[in-house]
């Protein structure tokens, strides 16, 4: 409301948004390049896993079925572990977003007085914080959105090359819109902590701890989600015979004579599509976004209480 009356009264227009956005980009150029490098690197890893990286494991599955995957034929089982590297990278990236928001983005500026420098240009603290949140948020959404899409593609294409257990299930249920919402919550929590603490080092520590809590709850530990079913031991792998019929895995492992005796010419495996996926994903995303909104509202409230805004 005060913004409305101000716009009506002030003859000099507020600076166009582009100037403020350019300034924020310029100030955090280093962080921006690191983020772009992170997204490019992780996307590269995902594309490799989607393409040539999967060849060995795929061949093992085609030839020996699920047994081929678990019997460490060449790098077949390595694929299963490499598959999660991208998830680790995403987690690290999300932590980095929270730390960045707490430290360099907000607290360092308040500590050194450069935030106050910005506020004494023609930029009100509220617009400053809005730009400080919106610009990184746009890059976080674009970056993690792209990575999540690729990861989802990868799961659809090669999820059946994973060794069954709790790990693939956790990944499967955590991957989706919530993967994008989590670093956004990290950004908002970091900004809130930065505004509250106003000193770089404590803000880094508290932001890290706050995001650790988010991380600990993610992956199906939210109280509202309940437990997911115990991991099934059944591999869901089917053998394909020469007649094209799909039969149960004859348990030949890598015994080619045994496979020939059963007329097995190939294998197929479908792993983990679950009707539970979307309800869980959307619920988690909703909760993360709601918490983000609360953190952002608190951050603006704190800022308004501190500085005269107009």
């Amino acid at each position: 409301m005060s913004a409305l009356t101000l716009e009506a009264a002030a003859p000099a227009p507020a600076p166009p948004r582009s100037g403020l956005v350019r300034t924020v980009l310029r100030l955090h150029r280093a962080a921006l390049w690191i983020w772009l490098a992170f997204v490019a690197g992780t996307a590269g890893l995902l594309l490799w896993l989607l393409g040539p990286g999967a060849d060995t494991a795929q061949r093992a599955l085609d030839t020996y079925g699920y047994s081929g995957l678990i019997m460490a034929m060449g790098s077949a089982d390595e694929y299963s572990s490499r598959f999660y590297y991208a998830d680790t990278l995403l987690t690290v990236g999300s932590f980095a977003v929270a730390l960045f928001a707490g430290g360099p983005l907000i607290a360092r500026e308040l500590e050194t007085g450069t935030a106050q420098l910005a506020w004494t240009q023609s930029v009100s603290p509220v617009r400053w914080l809005a730009a400080k949140l919106a610009v990184p948020a746009a890059f976080v959404v674009a970056g993690t959105g792209l990575l999540t899409l690729l990861y989802h593609q990868l799961w659809t294409a090669h999820g059946n090359l994973l060794i069954a257990g709790i790990q693939p299930r956790a990944l499967y249920f955590s991957l989706g819109p919530a993967t994008v919402a989590a670093p956004l919550l990290g950004l908002a929590l970091g900004a809130l902590i930065g505004l509250a603490v106003r000193r770089t080092l404590p803000a880094l520590a508290f932001s890290g701890f706050a995001y650790f809590l988010v991380y600990a709850f993610r992956g199906n530990h939210w109280p509202f989600q309940g437990r997911y079913q115990a991991p099934e031991l059944h591999s869901r792998s089917r053998a394909i015979t020469a007649t094209g019929a799909r039969v149960a895995d004859p348990d030949c492992y890598d015994d080619k004579a045994c496979l020939a005796k059963h007329h097995v010419v190939g294998f197929s495996r479908e792993y983990l599509p679950s009707s539970d996926y979307w309800p869980r994903q959307l619920l988690e995303t909703g909760v993360l976004l709601a918490l983000t909104a609360v953190a952002v509202a608190l951050a603006f409230g704190l800022l308004r209480r501190r500085a005269a805004t107009g």
């Binding site: 101000l6 002030a10 000099a12 310029r26 100030l27 150029r29 280093a30 050194t112 007085g113 450069t114 106050q116 420098l117 506020w119 004494t120 240009q121 023609s122 930029v123 009100s124 603290p125 500085a307 005269a308 805004t309 107009g310």
Partner: peptide
């Protein structure tokens, strides 16, 4: 003629520690 912060465009402030962005 306004509240503090209402006319930020017309007021300049130089803080004691002269904060500037070191990376620029």
């Amino acid at each position: 003629d306004g509240a503090p912060g209402e006319h930020r465009d017309r007021v300049a402030h130089l803080a004691q520690n002269k904060p500037l962005y070191p990376q620029l």
